[in-house]
Amino acid sequence: MSLIVSIMLFFGGMKSTEAHSGLIQKGKASFYSKRFHGKKTTSGERYQNNKLTAAHLSLPMNTLVEVTNLANNQSVVVRINDRGPHGKGRIIDLAYGAAKALGMVSSGIANVAIRVVGFNRKITEPITADLFPLNTRFEPRLAPVDNI
């Protein structure tokens, strides 16, 4: 039965732009020049240097992707909001803020692994692997509600 389902999915006309949670791709990442700040992306949003966004050739817009710099193991979650990269041999083009979080600004290009972690949501706060360092104690920002 599972063979039949697999064959149906394979030949069922699955679009190449459909993202599958956990999809992993390895390759080179670059980042946008600061001169693109304020220009429109493919999604219609304005590019902002400090946001955690990225360009990918085939992943759907608003796909959340974890990008890991393979040289230093730093990770960041970005949202796809543009098409690209247009540089040869690159798999993702990051906003400057994401490149800074990955520690790749000085090198300009980094070997990365990208993994799909979610869909159709916007990131409201920066999400990085070191958001809660292991040497600090977690303090909740909201107090519990006693009377509901």
Rank of each mutant, 00 (worst) to 15 (best):
L131N: 06
N73D: 10
R141I: 13
Y96M: 01
S75R: 01
G87F: 13
P140K: 12
V78R: 01
I109L: 04
A101W: 05
S75T: 14
D93Q: 13
I114R: 09
I123G: 08
A113P: 07
V117Q: 00
N72E: 02
N73Y: 13
R83F: 01
I123R: 03
L142Y: 08
F119I: 03
R90Q: 13
D146T: 15
S75E: 03
F138D: 11
S75Y: 01
V77W: 02
G118Q: 07
N135R: 08
G97P: 10
D146A: 11
V145F: 04
V78G: 06
N120C: 07
P85E: 08
R121S: 12
A113K: 14
S107F: 11
R115A: 08
A129F: 03
G87L: 15
R90K: 11
I91F: 12
D146V: 12
T128S: 11
T128M: 04
A71Y: 07
G89R: 12
V77Q: 00
L94V: 11
A110M: 13
A143H: 07
N73W: 08
A113I: 09
K122P: 11
G87I: 10
Q74M: 02
A99Q: 07
Q74P: 08
R115F: 07
I80K: 01
G108T: 14
I80V: 15
P133S: 02
K122A: 14
V78L: 07
F119T: 10
G108Q: 14
G97R: 02
N81T: 10
G89D: 09
N73P: 07
A99F: 01
V112C: 06
V117G: 00
V76D: 04
N81S: 02
G108N: 10
K122C: 13
N120F: 02
F132S: 12
K100W: 05
G108R: 08
V77D: 00
D82G: 09
I80Q: 01
T124K: 06
F119Y: 06
S75I: 05
S107Y: 03
N81E: 09
P144T: 10
I80C: 09
A99E: 09
N147V: 04
V112E: 03
V116I: 02
G84N: 01
F138A: 02
N147K: 15
D130M: 05
G118L: 00
V105A: 05
A99I: 15
S106L: 00
R115H: 09
V112F: 02
A129R: 10
P140R: 14
A113N: 11
Q74K: 08
V145H: 14
L102H: 03
R121I: 01
N111Y: 15
T128N: 04
N73F: 10
N147P: 08
I80G: 03
A129M: 11
L102S: 00
